[in-house]
Design a protein around this nucleic acid. Structure first.
Ligand SMILES: [Mn+2]
Ligand SMILES: [Mn+2]
Ligand SMILES: [Zn+2]
Ligand SMILES: [Zn+2]
Lengths: 143, 143
DNA sequence: ATTGAAAATGAAAGTTATTATCATTTAAGG
DNA sequence: CCTTAAATGATAATAACTTTCATTTTCAAT
């Protein structure tokens, strides 16, 4: 999805909710949509302040909540006690390999695993609405 | 593993580390070994206080850290922002199905998924040392 | 049993990430 | 240009965890 398309969806969501489109929201959303990492609020706030110096952490927090609620961002919790946000993956859902030494994160997709997850859940009468699969270990460079 | 066997392992671990075996540690460990749930520190502290009323939360916290470090307890993080502890499963490693409505937790094992995880990691040159697989959804009663 | 050094305890304070409050500013429709 | 509801940023509050410290307890060596 293109940047402008995302900004359009955000505007629509904001209008529909009776909210207002502000300078800060514009800047924070653009900064976020630009990233390709799993970014924390602290990290994102640094980026945003370079464009609008006065911006408060709370506004970044609230805007990321907005983006998450609207479905334009995904929030993730890896091992480090911080919430991280990532853009919607163009290729669809993915899971993560995380290096416990250098924190490198590799994304992967595995249709077979996903299917087995659903099979397993079904066996217990569960309806899965989301899941978390994280593999922690050593990346090639840290092995 | 029997209760006494676990207590023996704990004693050994404590001796080897040059630590001391106290009344509180005995009580907290027994209370924990008795549980079959994924218990939080608050919950465990309530149980412990019924046997030794003066026991402080910090002591429960420190003892569970000890049990985790010694390999006699597993710490888990589900969605609710609290650390939970569970006994070593007699049947070996398992993963979890979690009901987002009633918080019921069902444990499952799936060898195929485990193998696919390792295959996937290997494809990226990763060595997996642990993983987290949680399936969130609705249990049969809440569907 | 007594002693003494080292470790454990419990209350309280400190940490850290997140979330809420509130006075002031701003967006946007009329 | 006005109105007013929402947004902002500084700050305070929360919540779970972790540390500190004065006091108590353990336990090996008398
Ligand atoms: Mn990702
Ligand atoms: Mn379990
Ligand atoms: Zn690495
Ligand atoms: Zn349920």
């Amino acid at each position: 999805m293109k940047l402008d398309e995302k900004m359009g969806l955000l505007r629509t969501y904001i209008e529909n909710q009776g909210l207002k489109f502000t300078n800060q929201r514009d800047c924070i959303a653009r900064c976020f949509f630009r990233t390709r990492t799993h970014i924390s609020l602290d990290e994102l706030t640094v980026k945003v302040k370079k464009e609008i110096p006065g911006t408060g952490y709370a506004t970044v927090y609230r805007t990321m909540k907005l983006l998450t609620d609207s479905g334009l961002a995904l929030s993730r919790h890896f091992g480090d006690g911080q919430t991280r946000y990532e853009n919607l993956p163009a290729t669809g859902h993915h899971d993560h390999l995380i290096c416990v030494k250098c924190s490198r994160i590799i994304e992967f997709q595995n249709e077979k695993i996903e299917n087995l997850q659903n099979e397993t859940a079904a066996r217990f009468g569960f309806t899965v609405i989301n899941h978390k699969l994280e593999l922690y270990g050593y990346c090639p460079e840290c092995s």
